[in-house]
Structure formats: structure tokens, C-alpha cells
Computed example of a mutant assay.
Amino acid sequence: MSDTIRQTGESQPTFRFAPSPNGRLHLGHALSALLNAEMARTSGGRLLLRLEDIDVTRCTTEFEAAILADLDWLGIRHEEPVRRQSEHFGFYRQALDRLIERELVYPSFLTRGEVKARVQAYEREAGPWPRDPDGAPLYPTEERHLEAGERDRRLATTERFAYRLDMEKALAAIPLPLTWRDTGDGATGLILADPAAWGDVVLWRSDAPASYHLAVTLDDALQGVTHVVRGLDLFHATAVHRLLQVLLDLSEPIYHHHRLILAEDGRKLSKSSGDTALSALRERGLTPSDIRRLVGI
């Protein structure tokens, strides 16, 4: 598939399951994959598989093979070819360059340790530092205003940096209000998007070719995805994706954020939780029908 984005219009319903091959699939992934497959089937639509392997240090061919084996065992059939993000780094960079040309992103240089120290010092003196919907501190904004000479000097060094979206400029560049349509297990209908709650999000790092936000938004548009079915843990992040869709003139899918499968302690399942890995459950003798029952399908 060439990296040419097309508007979806009134095309056939298109769904995608998009795991990262950095661990074993667990029951939460099974719920998402099965929902995507079922919704594609009942709508007469298509099901695509995308492997989100941007993190080339943690994603492995072993985990990729395990994902394919788990999906086959569950009886989930998807179209070929499988899209691997690691094969399309130049595509993501082209989109970033468009935003750089419009001066909607800026290079940032603070390390995680420096941000942490800044936040702690502020909170000792002035109270809570603003945080994003996931609870992480928002990135300080003074680097938005670095002089061009200082910015160029720092970019020319070997220090690591990231390109961040200037949220203030980005919101000023689009018509408001910004919304999306959701049909899932949380809030439904027309949802008011609040990307500013995330602050100046990372779109690209010097040691990684794209952020999740940038890559997933571009890939959904490129692949003609009309329905994004994923967990409620990504509900609020949709605001950032909608902002990028408008800034880059991309198509807008319908979203369906489904309930999460939680561990016994109430936390979201992790790929490090071996006892809920599909391969471990299969070895214990469970069948695909058992998995459907466990996830409530």
C-alpha cells in the first residue's frame, strides 16, 4: 500500500485491530479484537490488522508471531497485507514537516528528570501543577518562545529533543468547537473534545520516528478506517487525534470506546500479566468459546 491518504466519504465500513508487538495479547486485547471482528461482520465491513511497532527496541518478531497465532486461534480473519508502522517512518515525518512549516510545533529539550524537578519545586511553593487526563504533569511551555538562534543552536548539538504540538497555536488554527461522535460504553453521542487538557503533546522524538498520537491518526486516515473501536482508556486521547485530523485535513471516523477488562485488583490488564495472556490461557486448556465467555461476548 502506498502512503497516500484518501478521504473515506461513504466508503465500506472499515475497522482495524491495532496491537503493539511488545508483549503477549491478553483478555483485554481479545475483547477489542473480537468486537472489531463482530462489528465488521454485522455491518458488512472490512477488518484490517495493523501492528503498531514504532518502538523498535521493545517490539519483536517473536511477539508479532504470537499475535498472529492468537488471532488465528480466536478465529479472527483480517485482510492482508498487515500494516507495520516500522515500514512507514518517512510517511510520519512528512506530516510532521507540514506542521513544522506552519510553526504549529516546536522542539523541546527538557528531560523527564528536569520536568519532574520543575514540577516538584513548583508544588512545594505554589500548589498543584496542572496534569493531563492520565495524571501526568503538563509539559512547561516556555520553550514555545525560544529565539530562533537559540533553538537552532540547541538542535545542532547532540542532545536529545522532541517536537511538541504548540497547543495554543494549534487551537487558534482550527474552527471550534471540536467534537467527535462516540457509540461506545462510556459517554455517547457528540462529544466535546478538549485537547488542551493534554498540554503540548509530543509528536516526534529524536530517538523515535513518531508518537502514538501522530502515527495512529495518520494510519487510520491512510487505511480508510471509518470506525475506531478501542478501549475506554483512550477515550480522552481522542481529543488530540481529532485536533490532528483537522490540522492535517484527514477524515473523521466514528469512535466506539468499549469497556475494559480489569485485573482482580481493579487495574487495567498489562502485557506483563502472564496469567491473563491468551497463550497461557490456551495452554491451560481454555477454548476460544471460553475466551468469549470470559470477556462477556
Rank of each mutant, 00 (worst) to 15 (best):
S2V: 14
T4F: 12
T4D: 14
I5N: 02
Q7R: 13
E10G: 12
S11H: 05
F15V: 01
A18N: 02
A18W: 01
A18Q: 01
P19I: 02
S20H: 00
L27T: 04
G28I: 03
G28Q: 05
L34E: 01
L35P: 01
L35S: 05
A37V: 04
A40C: 03
A40Y: 01
T42G: 01
S43W: 07
S43E: 14
G45F: 04
L48K: 09
D53N: 06
R58G: 07
T60R: 04
E64D: 09
A66L: 13
I67H: 10
L68D: 05
A69V: 12
D70P: 02
D72E: 15
W73M: 06
L74I: 10
R77I: 13
H78R: 06
E80M: 12
P81M: 06
H88T: 04
Y92K: 07
A95V: 03
L96M: 12
R98F: 08
I100L: 14
E101T: 15
Y106G: 04
P107S: 06
P107C: 05
S108I: 02
S108W: 08
L110T: 05
E114A: 14
E114W: 11
E114T: 11
E114S: 09
V115C: 10
A121D: 13
R124I: 09
G127R: 14
P130K: 11
R131C: 11
A136V: 12
A136C: 11
L138Y: 10
L138V: 11
E143H: 08
H145Y: 13
R153F: 07
R153D: 14
L155E: 06
T157K: 05
T158E: 15
E159R: 08
R160D: 12
R164C: 05
L165N: 03
M167E: 02
M167H: 09
M167Y: 06
A170S: 10
A170L: 06
P177L: 01
D182S: 03
L192G: 13
G199T: 06
W204F: 15
W204G: 00
W204P: 00
W204E: 07
A208N: 12
A210M: 10
H213T: 13
L214N: 03
D220A: 08
G224L: 09
V228P: 00
R230W: 07
D233E: 15
L234Q: 08
L234R: 02
F235H: 03
H236W: 10
A239P: 07
H241A: 10
R242E: 15
R242I: 02
P253G: 04
P253W: 04
H256A: 12
H258E: 06
L260Q: 05
L262E: 08
K268C: 03
S272Q: 14
S272D: 09
S272E: 11
D275M: 11
A277M: 05
S279C: 12
L281I: 03
R282V: 07
G285C: 08
G285N: 07
G285K: 08
L286M: 12
D290N: 14
I291M: 10
R293G: 09
